[in-house]
Amino acid sequence: MTDLLGWRSRLPRGGPQLAALALALAANAVVSPDFFHLLLRDGRLFGSPVDILNRGAPTVLLGVGMALVIATRGIDLSVGSVMAIAGAVAAAGVAHGLPWGVSIALALGAGVACGLWNGLLVAIMGIQPIVATLVLMVAGRGVAQLITSGRILTFDEPHLLWIGGGAIAGLPVAVVVALAAAALVLLMVRRTALALFIEAVGVNPQASRLAGVPSRAVLVYVYLVSGLLAATAGVLAAADIRAADANNAGLWLELDAILAVVLGGGSLYGGRFSLGLTVVGALTLQTLKTCILRAGFPPEFNLIAMAGVVAVVLVIQSPAVGALGGRLVPRLREVRL
């Protein structure tokens, strides 16, 4: 908030976030020396960076939605469950013989419905976002189980399999879908006045309302987008394993999404947001996960290592460290004089 030393203006915007991503990538290169080795086979790109993009696709989608929600001072805990619901709907759809397009449309529709539900609870009923979305977080997984009757619903519909394993322009479909969706949302908010409205509502909801900003509509909108993106992520995750796993799909991913926003430099107090940096944050997170998985530590250390690394990254990005850097620079100059 306070920018007494002006370090933010001194460093380029997004510098700390990109630095964190670079560090995470460097750590990977240390763990596996041929990390950056890319290979083109059958018109498709293979390599660890591609894997990271592919694995990170759901987090990117959830993160983008979460960034909008958090910008309005809210939070959407239900995204993991919405993923499970969407995956279940898509799988159940093709299992009942519906065309693949209809199944996916139904799955995305389910996401929109979930987002609408959250948005109405928050914007119209005035329930605190963390409580409102907790309802669907808890109940949503049950709904997903109901749809799959408690089993892992495997499918072999060729279009869905293509989403999971195919490629567009050499990149996995999931990567293209996630980046395209992120770009689309970016265009939709930045090329319209939505970004201004979202930030205004997040900074001061009352003043925004009095300035004529349709605060409620803005709130419903962000939860709706979050639900739709979560459903997209759910379809991708189901296509990835060729099955709808109601119990495990998207489990705890809401926390990853929040972390992606935070790693992207977003404040949980709402206001300014950056979708681009949130994507960077999501990819940083996935890069770290990949690094830990590949380092060959015993699995008991996974969580500790992850927590430690995330803490380090957050400290690097913290204003205090930035201020320290800012203070060191003039001091060094003095020494030289």
Partner: peptide, 15 residues
């Protein structure tokens, strides 16, 4: 300064 004018114009027609 732009907020109220923009709010009246609606989200789809950005200044």
């Amino acid at each position: 300064i732009a907020l109220a004018l923009q709010a009246r114009g609606g989200w789809a027609r950005p200044l």
